[in-house]
Design a protein around this nucleic acid. Structure first.
Lengths: 212, 212
DNA sequence: GGTGCGATGTATCGGTCCGATACATCGTGG
DNA sequence: CCACGATGTATCGGACCGATACATCGCACC
């Protein structure tokens, strides 16, 4: 998952680790808290070993007058390679059980603007299926096994069930939108306090390439 | 986290691994999908090594007439020890950053009926704090950095923000209930089809909402 | 002039947990 | 009679996290 996210971000622009982490946290803020360096750096190492990114020490290059007295520890800038772009395209297009889990779905969704519509639809429907199953499990629990559980556990299940129902509704709307070939924007039920203006959304056509 | 959950469940009754997993999945169904055996068994090993649980091969004991021809691989039943109960009490009472994360909070909450009220309050408030911060981060993102993000990422953030707002409201109610010294049951805002508390009859399809 | 402090920046280590896999037994129904 | 799904125990490699260490930079404050 990290692999996909890193490749996706580096496709927009070369970055060094710290910056990458910030961008990652911004893009996936709704999914997970923050990416740990303990995951980030080893993954970068792995991606480099696979030839999907290249690592370049950021030396001024234009100014070599003071060679190496203080030996400035330069920032390490990572750049995606052609193979890396290929790998990203492959990862973003493939669907499967891991695509429907909380984290996997979130990461894929965050890169939907670079995913073709058929894949988007497949992912949204797979996710819906997954959440519906989770929902059914909770419903059963609250129905049949209710007396075996204490009040707090019950309340937790109830809250989880509600979250499932909300997400299914959300997915329904996204799927409907997707089918009608329109923008991802959902009608908005008014609870969230966002600015919410429709910022010239990408047209029905797929695979936008923003980022000049 | 698994450690706490296992100790908590074994305090209710001795169990073997498979059963433990099912109970775990039932109790934490709202939090995580299912506990992997790849986590469960090593953890059981660890707990046993620490002396918090004991492992007993389930042999009929009354019938030793056929000693070991087929060498029936008995189920391994785990029982909590006195030290284990002590450990559980210690784990359930302590609060900290890891208590406020998604998984940590869920596990602690699931055992709230065995947690004293002061600790419950501390956990609920810490969780609220955590979610409020996440919410503020998302709000900032949707406000200031909105133009840097594509429509799908924006939609993801919006959905995440809404979830945060809902959870904060939920926590507010729980905290208010807690302070007034009443039961955990929340008034229920009508969206989820939850059974109103633990009245004996489990109405099967009472949940309504969509899905014809 | 110094000094402390928070943001920037790279990196490792131990540990938790997951997903895939393997294998054996049991009851049920075709 | 045997296939199949549920029950049941177990391991292995890998992904990811939290804590930790360390070094530089700019700026506010004294």
């Amino acid at each position: 998952m990290l692999e996909l996210a890193i490749l996706g971000l580096l496709q927009e622009a070369p970055m060094h680790g710290y910056e990458l982490r910030k961008e990652l946290t911004a893009k996936l803020g709704a999914i997970r808290a923050a990416i740990s360096y303990g995951s980030l750096y080893p993954t970068l190492r792995r991606l480099q070993a696979a030839g999907w990114i290249t690592e370049a020490d950021e030396t001024p290059a234009t100014a070599e007058e003071v060679p190496a007295l203080t030996s400035r520890r330069g920032r390490v800038v990572y750049t995606i390679t052609a193979e890396g772009k290929e790998r990203f395209a492959q990862l973003i297009a493939q669907t499967g059980p891991e695509t429907y889990g909380d984290t996997g779905f979130g990461v894929h969704f965050a890169f939907f603007s670079r995913t073709d519509q058929a894949t988007r639809l497949r992912i949204l429907e797979g996710r819906r299926r997954t959440i519906e199953e989770r929902r059914e499990g909770l419903r059963d629990m609250l129905g049949r096994a209710a007396e075996r559980l204490d009040a707090y556990t019950l309340e937790l299940q109830r809250h989880g069930l509600e979250a499932c129902e909300r997400e299914v509704r959300w997915l329904e709307e996204l799927i409907a939108n997707e089918r009608s070939g329109r923008a991802p924007t959902v009608p908005n039920d008014g609870t969230a306090g966002g600015p919410r203006e429709d910022n010239s959304p990408p047209p029905p056509g797929e695979t936008r390439t923003e980022r000049p």
